[in-house]
Simulated assay, not measured.
Amino acid sequence: MTATTLSDIAQPPNRRRRPGERSTMRDVAAAAGVSVKTVSRVVNAEPGVRGDVRDRVLAAAENLDYRHNLAASNLRRSGARSGVIGVLVQDLANSFSASLVRALEDAMRPHKVMLVAASLDETTLREQRTVENLITRRVDGLVLVPASARQDYLAPEIRAGFPIVFADRSPRGVDTDSVVVDNALGAFMAVDHLLAGGHRRIAVLTDSAAIATAQDRLRGVRAAFAKHAVEFPEDLLRQGARTQDDAARDVWALRDLPEPPTAIFAARNTITIGAVQALSERAERHTVALVGFDDFPLADLLDLTVVRQDVARLGALVGSRLLARIEGDTSPPVHDVLPPTLVVRGSGEIAPQPAPAG
């Protein structure tokens, strides 16, 4: 018996496709001289098809540029799965968000699950509309870094058993799986380190006060001051920095105070970059101590002391938890809290410098 070649496969009779129209399973069946059911078994890698018939179907599919509609096929099966999950983060351009998405991608790839990722930009309405769009498009589950203060709107989906895992920020108003880093502990470690180095005038720059992680980090800051029996300098607190430029302006203003800070705790990676920018512009990189929350590319080359979150582990745990729920795990919600790490590189170890003579 000779092997089937592409030239042996005829175009299906009485079937003319319009320009841009894809071939269908029916077209492949007609070209291969088999039933549509047989084509379905071949493209879905099901058993029960002879080798020569399988070869003939695959050759016909290749000749017709057929692409199997995996989503439609999955939805017809008993599990009714799409093989796609939604991942909603704050900003895909941010190194933390990008690292989280990559960690999830690595976790999902062995299971042939695809990711659809989107940025929320700390916008409640965008979060709710994007969640609704993804659910109506039949994703198998969601990973959510919420922008909203409460997520009660998800209660019907959670009651219905739709898999949702929160990452980086804990759920509020609903109870579902979450994996977060101990933000209060991380901020405590950063400021405790500066206080132990002799600093008392420590500026604290945070994200919006409405964001849960910013609240947790400020709580850790105050706990560190309490440990050292040092009064927290409220005049050095700046909240609401959303961009690198916002943070740079805050640092300029703080360093121009009559009694400027000798150290800075930047409670987000974007804020840290803005602080580095301002200190560099002022030629103060080596005279003002700086500790940032979140590691990021090039932070080591800048000798930045940072509180590092294990994003790879966070993403792996989120992915594992979501896959278990998709597979039918109905056990009570699990809330994992991961410890951060203080990475000492030099910027946080600069000793307090006397204020320049006025």
Rank of each mutant, 00 (worst) to 15 (best):
V143K: 02
S40P: 03
L88M: 08
P13K: 14
A209R: 10
V318R: 02
L75F: 13
L115G: 08
L205D: 05
T330G: 07
D300K: 11
K37P: 14
A248G: 10
F96Y: 15
A266L: 11
P339S: 09
T213C: 03
D106P: 12
R325N: 09
P356G: 01
R56Y: 10
N44A: 12
S119H: 05
L290Q: 04
F96H: 12
A160G: 08
S347D: 09
A224Q: 04
E132A: 04
A299P: 11
G274N: 01
A190L: 05
A98P: 15
Q90Y: 00
R81I: 03
D207W: 12
L58M: 10
A203G: 14
R137L: 02
A184V: 06
A149E: 09
D207V: 07
M25A: 06
R150T: 15
D250F: 15
I164A: 02
L218F: 09
V204S: 00
D336M: 09
V39D: 02
P340F: 02
L298E: 13
S148C: 09
A203R: 13
L115W: 09
T305A: 00
D182W: 04
K227G: 10
V291T: 06
A103I: 01
T213F: 02
S331G: 10
S97T: 01
G20T: 02
P12T: 10
R41C: 03
G315I: 02
A10W: 05
A253D: 01
A209N: 06
L257T: 07
G315T: 01
S7C: 03
L185G: 00
A61N: 05
I85N: 04
R129D: 08
F232S: 04
G319V: 12
A98F: 07
Q244T: 09
S95P: 15
L254F: 13
A196W: 04
A147Q: 08
S208T: 08
A266Q: 07
L144N: 04
A355E: 14
A224S: 02
T287G: 15
D175R: 10
L64K: 03
V84M: 01
A263H: 04
